[in-house]
Each structure stands twice: as C-alpha cells, then as structure tokens.
Amino acid sequence: MAYSVSQPRNVLYTLIDKNDQSKYVCFTQKKAEGLRIGLSDGLDVWKAVLSEESLSQLKKKFSLKSTEDYALKLKGACRSGSAFVSLQEDGAVLHLGSEPADLNLSFSKLADHEGRTELKDLLFKMADSLTQEDTGATSLSSPVKSPQKKSTGFEPRNQCNGPAIAVRKRLPGDSLINPGTRRKRPATGVDFDDGDDA
C-alpha cells in the first residue's frame, strides 16, 4: 500500500516509563476529527483523540504553529525521561512531567479485537516507512543492467565521512618498508689498487 505525499505524516516514538522502566510505543496521526494519539505496550492499546478545538488551545498554550509541531512536542516530552504512564482498569493516563501544570493525556483502552487491528496497522505502517527509506537510499536503476564494481579487498578504501587520501605511486628504487626513502645499494668496496703503478 503506497502512501501519497499529501497524506499527513505519522509521528512514531518510544516511551520509557520513568517509574518502572517499562516501554511503550506512542504514535500520532492527524485525522478529520482531530489528532489521534495511540499508546501501546505491545499487548494492550490505548487511544486518545484531541479535537480541533482542544488542539488550537494547546497550540496557543505552547506557542505552536501546526498540529505536527504539537505531535513533535509530545514526542520530545516523552523522550525527555520525565514521562510516566498510570494504568487504570479501562484506560491510562500519560503524565508528561512532574508539575501539575504539565500536560497529562487520558486514554481509553481499546477492546482486544480493536487493539490487535490497531497493532497490525501500526506494524505495516512501520514496515512501509522502512521500505520507503530503503528504496529512497538505493538507485532506481536495475542492478542487472548496471552491475556495481565489487571490491577485491586489495584496493584502498575511500572513507565517506573523511577526506579522500591520495595514493602516491611508488617509484622504482623506493623502499617498500619505509616509503619515501630510496633503497640503499650494497657497498661495492674501494679499489686500492691503482692501475697506473705497473
């Protein structure tokens, strides 16, 4: 299933509860009814929907320009290390800070069937986004038509992040052990016999 460019971007992140170090997956998506926020521990799924009216109040409160800015602020608060989740019988509360003025979100728990469907959709969205990243990183041409040159292991490797190192050609007579110096010729000795004394 291909996603169009006009489709709103999902924001996906993990949350580690500061109290018991349990992990949750949080995800947000812009819908017609407002911003939909999901929370899951891998087994259960909780959902909250913020209406456009409540979103506009939150945007004013935090001086944000768009709904995506709020989703990214939520992501930053969850990753700050001060967030925690209070689980209840039919819901959960996400506490994004220790102060009472900090934002808390109330979630309702989805039924088992709805939760499994939500996790399935989330799994495929993650796989689709990874697939899109992989196809964006590779070239569009077919590897059969344009085979890549394979490295034999004996060629100098270029570092992607560092500067390219120029390989100097070895001149005849240069030392292999100490490049840049000339090989010393063995001494031939001194001829003390003068040919003129005969």
Results as ranks from 00 to 15, higher is better:
residue 146 S to V: 06
residue 27 F to H: 08
residue 29 Q to V: 07
residue 47 K to A: 07
residue 121 D to C: 12
residue 142 S to G: 03
residue 79 R to W: 01
residue 23 K to S: 15
residue 27 F to K: 04
residue 112 D to K: 13
residue 98 S to Q: 12
residue 108 S to C: 13
residue 169 K to T: 11
residue 124 F to D: 06
residue 162 G to M: 05
residue 72 L to H: 04
residue 167 V to F: 00
residue 195 G to W: 13
residue 68 E to C: 03
residue 40 S to Y: 00
residue 103 L to V: 08
residue 17 D to G: 05
residue 72 L to G: 02
residue 121 D to Y: 08
residue 93 V to F: 08
residue 99 E to A: 10
residue 49 V to S: 15
residue 140 L to I: 06
residue 21 Q to L: 15
residue 117 T to C: 15
residue 101 A to M: 12
residue 150 K to H: 13
residue 13 Y to S: 08
residue 147 P to R: 05
residue 154 F to W: 11
residue 161 N to S: 14
residue 8 P to W: 01
residue 184 K to F: 03
residue 96 L to C: 12
residue 1 M to D: 06
residue 51 S to A: 07
residue 22 S to Q: 15
residue 188 T to H: 08
residue 23 K to Y: 13
residue 42 G to W: 10
residue 95 H to Q: 08
residue 44 D to C: 06
residue 185 R to Y: 06
residue 128 D to A: 00
residue 99 E to D: 12
residue 63 S to Q: 13
residue 164 A to V: 09
residue 136 G to M: 10
residue 86 S to V: 04
residue 117 T to R: 11
residue 88 Q to L: 12
residue 177 I to N: 05
residue 81 G to H: 07
residue 76 G to Y: 09
residue 84 F to Q: 05
residue 3 Y to D: 08
residue 10 N to C: 11
residue 28 T to D: 02
residue 151 S to R: 14
residue 90 D to A: 15
residue 6 S to F: 09
residue 187 A to T: 01
residue 112 D to F: 12
residue 55 L to G: 02
residue 8 P to S: 02
residue 82 S to K: 10
residue 5 V to S: 05
residue 12 L to M: 08
residue 48 A to Y: 03
residue 160 C to E: 14
residue 10 N to S: 11
residue 123 L to G: 05
residue 195 G to I: 11
residue 22 S to V: 02
residue 102 D to I: 02
residue 29 Q to Y: 09
residue 188 T to Y: 06
residue 28 T to F: 01
residue 66 S to T: 10
residue 179 P to H: 03
residue 74 L to S: 03
residue 36 R to S: 03
residue 2 A to G: 03
residue 95 H to T: 07
residue 83 A to T: 07
residue 168 R to Y: 02
residue 117 T to L: 12
residue 155 E to S: 15
residue 195 G to V: 14
residue 170 R to N: 09
residue 56 S to D: 12
residue 35 L to V: 10
residue 177 I to W: 01
residue 101 A to T: 12
residue 161 N to A: 05
residue 197 D to H: 08
residue 7 Q to P: 05
residue 172 P to E: 05
residue 42 G to T: 00
residue 146 S to E: 14
residue 4 S to V: 10
residue 81 G to N: 04
residue 47 K to E: 03
residue 122 L to C: 13
residue 73 K to S: 07
residue 35 L to P: 01
residue 189 G to I: 13
residue 141 S to G: 02
residue 62 F to Q: 04
